[in-house]
């Protein structure tokens, strides 16, 4: 398995790739794992990827390899500079478990989609050099996890969110 780190539009991605067969790979991005089959690998000559080539609405420029020269176009300020708001504001909101005290997350024990019981260990928070087990306040399904191992959290930072019932 190899670990690759890429910067896409100033966002960093860590991608782990494990080969399964010649053209099949298991890819882990963040907490999600994908099985990727590379079905076609064609040489299109010396075509360059131009900024005008857009898949979606926003002009997001992606350097696929070093040979393709990419010129950055001035994008609308908000889209280009503002990183995706991954964290909800302090307090979280409905169905969100927040950190009871400042500290460092040592271990996250759940991932999105997990069914959890009340009191089940969700994360381990190191506060004042003490390992505190954070339990789930109620049974339910995890929708999103906002923290990773080694991340420092403040009081009231969201840890994870329940799926809406």
């Amino acid at each position: 398995m190899r670990r690759y780190k890429l910067d896409i539009s100033d966002r960093e991605f860590v991608v782990d790739v494990q080969e399964i067969a010649a053209d099949r790979f298991a890819v882990v991005v963040g907490d999600e794992s994908y099985e990727v089959t590379l079905s076609s690998d064609e040489n299109l000559g010396e075509a360059t990827i131009t900024p005008g080539f857009q898949a979606g609405a926003a002009p997001r420029v992606i350097a696929v390899n070093t040979a393709a020269r990419v010129t950055q176009v001035p994008a609308p300020a908000a889209a280009a500079t503002a990183p995706a708001p991954r964290k909800p504001a302090a307090g979280g909101g409905k169905g969100t478990l927040t950190a009871p005290m400042p500290g460092v997350i040592l271990e996250v024990s759940v991932k999105p989609g997990d069914q959890i019981e009340r009191g089940q260990q969700v994360a381990v928070l190191d506060a004042m050099k003490m390992h505190n087990v954070i339990g789930a306040p109620r049974a339910g399904t995890v929708a999103e996890v906002y923290v990773t191992d080694g991340e420092s959290v403040d009081h009231g930072d969201a840890i994870f969110k329940y799926m809406e019932d």
Binding site: P100, M101, G119, A127, M128, K129, M130, N132, V133, G135, P137
Partner: peptide
């Protein structure tokens, strides 16, 4: 310091796992 505070936190959490007294105890 800081064993006593840790013990307080542990006893409180035994009673109610959602109770975090550590900072007050510290």
């Amino acid at each position: 310091f800081p064993m006593a505070a840790r013990v307080v936190q542990r006893v409180a959490q035994e009673e109610d796992f959602e109770n975090f007294l550590l900072m007050h105890a510290m």
